[in-house]
Design a binder for these strands. Structure first.
Length: 830
RNA sequence: GCGAGGGUGUCGGAACCGGCAGACGAGCUGGACUUAGGAUCCAGUGCCCCAAAGGCGUAGGGGUUCGAAUCCCCUCCCUCGCACCA
């Protein structure tokens, strides 16, 4: 038995001392950039992290062995809320907490022997890094993509900060799960909506991304094609309304404005309903976001007392204010078409608003008087003035042409996605590089003055504004333009900005004159394989794509998409539940690695489930992986022939040697394993790759139990060496050790990835399954390459088949059909 | 409600293109070796049946096919995402 601890520390030291995984650009080699989403330094590494990094490391080591120049870096996403929470709880500044966590986690990570290029380690909370995050902010500012506006925003009362829309999940803060409140605040935004169309369209080119992630982004972007139509208010004011069903314009029987709509107050001036409307708005504004937008919430509306004119039909229709209309989406006003929209139908029934059928179904059976639900399909336009008789899809186009011609509306594409709110009322982040000057207004900090240093060591209090907003030495500065006394912006940048460009930084992490070297990006990017949790499908992954496109437009990077291939790995669960401190089912990296070692841990995690599926943690399973590695160790390192007495491997003498094992079989399974493991790693089926290695090992085990004279040492050694090479990406320490003990002076990775010999894979005899009416009745062996006729001949020689089908000519007569699948089966149909 | 993914032994999971269902591992049962075994090795292990023969089996029902875990239709259940988006 081998000592995992000793071997693992030996090889970790070897890789460190030899800088084995320190890389630089080398145009003579194909490159591979493997990246796992970098770590938030929360303090403790659990097995979920390990799984993520192990998947990446396995693939990177495989690529190394295949002669690739592999960039495999790691670092720390070190800004963020938890450091401040911890600071409050422990009364230590966030910087101290963060640095000590990083120091601890770095050692934990290193104990797993990942092939990271540690010379490229980065930390987003270091000035050398966040200087460039601030530079990125200024770049967007310069390009008109960063701006400040007063807007209703998501406020997390627990985190004391605003959140971007992407960071609110079902009305709750993505991080702390608190109910998010709506507040009106002046905030900094990135104009991601300018990129909506490209972010959507380019999804089509991301062949290496899982479909579900692309769909999530597509839904998030939420493109709707329709028309904006200007209804006319009582005083001639334009009330633009967005619809995707402009073909139903003649069916509009009312319009509804969002309570926040600025026109509401103007419209109700002098209306007898004014007070009622104001009371309604007041009531709605009291409701939480959750209550107001939940599916079950009753749709409520109130009449304003005034009427609008439908600019297409000329109809006079009531104007209402409704709680279900979202001010931030499109124009914040909708037209009500109860005949052809479910929601409008319910609303109209409730308030006794008229219902008009303007689209007929195929049977022409719809009747305004007797409708029991909206007809939302397409059909023939009726009661629609000059458009009557058109098919609705054609009508959509005609109506857009008509309203554009008349200047009463326009074709319009609307997106659900909003601009990215990036300011945070927090301390532990990169300061927004803006100065507020009494004379000049908001002034960007000149690039040469970056970074705007974040003062460290400040005390964080549980309540009130962030320490930064109270720290005078930080706040007070001078205007870079006019030199007057000025104040710094005290909000910090959303940490998702820090992580939206780090993969470029890794290509040249120590560059001081730029965020990254363009030639380094040119060589390494895009990331060839990016691995992380699916929870970032529409946060990090969307932001990163956006920032990449901005940098591309600026001519700084050569790629328009950052990640060529994406793998969203499943969670590690225990008893079917996600590991969490509150459930007390967390398995930490330390406990498992100190007990079983890195190789065992890695092999178990790769074997127990496919990477993209959830993995059920099982200590028994870990033990199984340990047994496997120990067996391989014995098979590879122990001598076949005992010098005297009993062969220790062959076991005792009254055991029958396994007759299934043979040298030919050994070579066959060896080469088949090369083929299978290679293909499996290529398609990220790491679990079945491991199972194939187990089968190879099982066969070697049988082979070793053969009588000594049956053992071919050359074949055996080939099998052993192959096993070690193929297993190395999964269990690198023990494989490096075994390789050395096999007498090699290079390392197992330098030795390269084995190639299979197609000749050795072929079987001489092939098992053919015989079915009768689709049921398996017998199996026969035929020589490889037999013709169909030869196989059929053999099939009818089978006694068991004869029993069922009968013998002789009349038996053949009963056979209706014989289906032959080459080298697989014969099905006799009676 | 909409969208996506999934449902296979006792458990984790295989079966890539429609062709031997259950690879590999775990667990369990029996055995060998042992002072001992939670080490190691061997054998067995979907269900019915004493066994054989045979039958039944991939959530349930129907269909296509010589042949279906795989393709199609319906139903049920689970997970995830979005959720009044006009």
């Amino acid at each position: 038995m081998y000592d995992a601890r000793e071997i693992e520390s030996k090889w970790q030291a070897f890789w460190r001392d030899n800088e084995t995984y320190v890389v630089s650009e080398d145009p003579s080699k194909p490159k591979f950039y493997g990246l796992e989403m970098f770590m938030y330094p929360s303090g403790d590494l659990h097995v979920g992290h390990l799984r993520n990094y192990t998947i990446g490391d396995t693939v990177c080591r495989y690529k190394w062995a295949n002669g690739y120049n592999v960039l495999h870096p790691t670092g720390w996403d070190a800004f963020g809320m938890p450091a401040e929470n911890a600071a409050i709880a422990r009364k230590t500044p966030p910087d101290k907490w963060t640095w000590s966590n990083i120091a601890h986690m770095r050692e934990q990570i290193k104990s797993l022997g990942f092939s990271y290029d540690w010379s490229r380690e980065i930390c987003t909370a270091f000035p050398e890094y966040y200087k460039w995050t601030q530079w990125l902010f200024l770049l967007l500012y310069k390009r008109g993509l960063a701006y400040k506006k007063m807007a209703p925003v998501n406020w997390c009362p627990h985190c004391h900060t605003v959140l971007a829309n992407e960071q609110v999940e079902q009305g709750r803060c993505w991080r702390c799960d608190s109910l998010v409140e709506r507040r009106h605040m002046e905030q900094w935004f990135f104009k991601i909506t300018d990129y909506a169309e490209r972010l959507l369209n380019d999804l089509q080119n991301l062949d290496g991304w899982p479909e579900h992630v692309k769909i999530m982004q597509e839904n998030w972007i939420g493109r709707s094609e329709g028309a904006e139509i200007d209804f006319i208010g009582p005083r001639g004011e334009k009330i633009p309304v967005f619809t995707t069903r402009q073909d139903t314009i003649y069916g509009v029987t009312y319009i509804v404005l969002a309570p926040e709509h600025p026109l509401v107050e103007q419209l109700i001036q002098g209306s007898e309903y004014a007070n009622e409307v104001r009371a309604f708005i007041e009531k709605v504004s009291q409701m939480s976001e959750m209550d107001r937008t939940s599916e079950v919430a009753e749709k409520e509306g109130v009449f304003t007392g005034v009427y609008a004119t439908n600019p297409v039909s000329g109809d006079k229709i009531p104007i209402l204010v409704g709680n279900y209309v979202i001010y931030e989406y499109a124009t914040g006003a909708v037209m009500g078409v109860p005949g052809h929209d479910e929601r409008d139908f319910i609303f109209a029934k409730k308030y006794g608003l008229p219902i008009k059928v303007v689209i007929q179904n195929e049977e022409m059976t719809l009747d305004s008087e007797q409708l029991d639900g909206a007809y939302t399909g397409s059909g023939i336009m009726v009661n629609s003035g000059p458009f009557t008789g058109l098919f609705s899809e054609d009508g959509k186009k005609k109506i857009v042409e008509y309203i554009e011609e008349k200047g009463i509306g326009r074709g319009k594409v609307t997106y659900k996605m909003r601009d990215w709110l990036i300011s945070r009322q927090r301390y532990w982040g990169a300061p927004i590089p803006i100065v507020h000057c009494p004379n000049c207004g908001d002034v960007p900090v000149p690039e040469e003055d970056l970074p705007v240093y974040l003062p460290v060591g400040l005390e964080v209090l549980p309540e009130g504004p962030s320490p930064l907003a109270r720290y005078e030495p930080f706040i007070n500065t001078t205007c870079p333009v006019c030199g007057a006394a000025a104040k710094r912006e005290t909000d910090t940048i959303d940490t998702f900005v820090c992580s939206s460009w780090y993969y470029f930084r890794f290509t040249s992490p120590h560059e001081t004159k730029a965020a990254f070297r363009q030639d380094a990006v040119e060589y390494w990017c895009p990331v060839d394989l990016y691995i992380g949790g699916v929870e970032h499908a529409v946060m990090h992954l969307l932001y990163a794509r956006f920032i990449t496109k901005v940098l591309y437009d600026e001519g700084l990077v050569s790629v328009e998409e950052p990640f060529a291939n994406l793998l969203t790995q499943g969670m590690v669960v225990r008893h079917g539940a996600k590991m969490s401190k509150s459930k007390g089912n967390v398995v930490t990296a330390d406990e498992i690695v100190s007990k079983y070692g890195a190789d065992v841990t890695r092999v178990f995690m790769m074997f127990a489930a496919p990477p993209e599926r959830d993995l059920e943690w099982s200590e028994r399973g870990v033990e199984g992986a340990q047994r496997f590695l120990r067996r391989v160790w014995r098979q590879v390192t122990e001598d076949v022939v005992a010098t005297e007495g009993e062969n220790p491997i062959k076991g005792n003498e009254n055991e029958q040697p396994d007759v299934d094992a043979s040298t030919e079989g050994l070579l066959r399974i060896t080469h088949r394993s090369i083929k299978k493991v290679t293909e499996d790693i290529e398609r990220m089926a790491l679990n079945t790759a491991v199972s194939q290695l187990m089968e190879l090992s099982n066969y070697i085990g049988k082979y070793l139990r053969l009588p000594e004279e049956c053992i071919d040492l050359d074949a055996l050694n080939q099998a052993r060496e192959t096993l070690v090479k193929l297993l190395n990406p999964f269990a690198p320490h023990v494989c490096h050790e075994m390789w050395q003990r096999l007498g090699n002076s290079d390392t197992v990775e330098q030795a390269g990835w084995p190639q299979f010999d197609p000749e050795l894979i072929k079987e001489d005899m092939i098992t053919i399954v015989i079915q009768v009416n689709g049921k398996v009745r017998d199996k026969i062996l035929v020589p490889a390459g037999s013709t169909d006729d030869q196989v059929i001949q053999k099939v009818f020689e089978s006694e068991r088949i004869a029993k069922i089908v009968g013998e002789g000519p009349q038996a053949r007569g009963k056979v209706k059909r014989v289906i032959v699948v080459k080298d697989k089966l014969v099905n006799i149909v009676l």
